[in-house]
């Protein structure tokens, strides 16, 4: 069977298009590259949607945590503490079983027990909490001078926040936020190892990589393939976030622009 044929059969296997049965014997390199690549679709989907949605919640949480009123501050603090203080792995398990019991009470909650929604919600809350902490830190470090200058120009309230404080805090937070984005993509590999069932063996990249490692008893092929895909994904994320960073800093003189320095944030 040619490799092209394999790509046609398995290229979209992870979303249920193509051959129904996974290869059982005679695993070729092409099988592994195609299926693991197909699984990456899930990682990219989880990563992008959770990041986009999480960005907004994170901003709201950061503002709430920075607020003077305990009514806003306390809930935000607790939310951030719960999601940052416990392992994502356990959050996935708990989330899955929580959605299962919800489903018995409210039939409308049914889709939440599927990975595409349930795991997404957990990832969304999780990244929102981590990003909120980053944004909160940035809000606290906005230079006093900028705030005073805004006052001097007669800006106040929402307008001051929208035009001065928030853009500056984004600029300050962006390097750290880039790291958060990278590790969010890495964290998406936990989904199918944590309670959420893989329907019809439609899983993410790591799901297929471990499938091959188990079947061939040889970890030295599937995991490096997976690593290659993720390094590529990481480079793309860094590139995209770098472009945004450039845009955020475009008005600053060259030497003041903040470069993104990659730092480790690892598993949560």
């Amino acid at each position: 069977m040619s490799c092209w044929q394999t790509i046609q059969d398995y290229g979209l296997r992870s979303i249920g298009i193509g051959e129904r049965l996974l290869p059982k014997t005679d695993f070729t390199l092409c099988h592994q590259v195609t299926l693991i690549g197909s699984g990456m679709l899930w990682n990219i989907y989880f990563g992008i949607v959770a990041l986009l949605a999480g960005f907004f919640l994170a901003n709201a949480l950061a503002v709430a945590k920075n607020s003077g009123s305990a009514w806003f501050r306390k809930p935000a603090e607790w939310f951030i503490f719960v999601f940052r203080g416990s392992p994502l792995f356990i959050q996935f398990f708990f989330g899955y079983f929580l959605f299962l019991s919800l489903k018995k009470l409210v039939p409308a909650a049914a889709p939440f027990t599927d990975a595409w929604l349930g795991a997404l919600v957990v990832l969304f809350f999780n990244t929102a909490a981590y990003s909120a902490e980053i944004f909160y830190g940035a809000l606290r470090t906005v230079p006093k001078g900028e705030s005073e200058a805004a006052d001097a120009y007669g800006f106040s309230g929402w307008k001051k926040f929208r035009r001065i404080i928030w853009p500056t805090s984004m600029r300050l937070a962006w390097p750290a936020y880039t790291n958060e984005a990278i590790f969010l993509f890495h964290a998406t590999t936990l989904v199918f190892f944590s309670g959420f069932p893989a329907w019809r063996q439609e899983g993410d990249a790591l799901y297929y990589a471990s499938y091959f490692a188990e079947k061939t008893f040889n970890p030295f092929i599937p995991y490096p393939i997976l690593a290659g895909y993720f390094i590529l994904l990481t480079l793309i994320v860094v590139g995209v976030f770098g472009l945004i960073n450039k845009r955020l800093n475009r008005h600053l003189p060259q030497e003041h622009r903040r470069k993104i320095r990659l730092r480790l944030r690892l598993i949560r």
Partner: peptide, 19 residues
């Protein structure tokens, strides 16, 4: 260890070290 999900390393090393 930077560009690759850590749990991939966990799954990999535990078999690879044994072998």
């Amino acid at each position: 260890v930077r560009g690759v999900p850590d749990i991939a390393f966990f799954l990999f090393f535990v078999i690879a070290l044994d072998q």
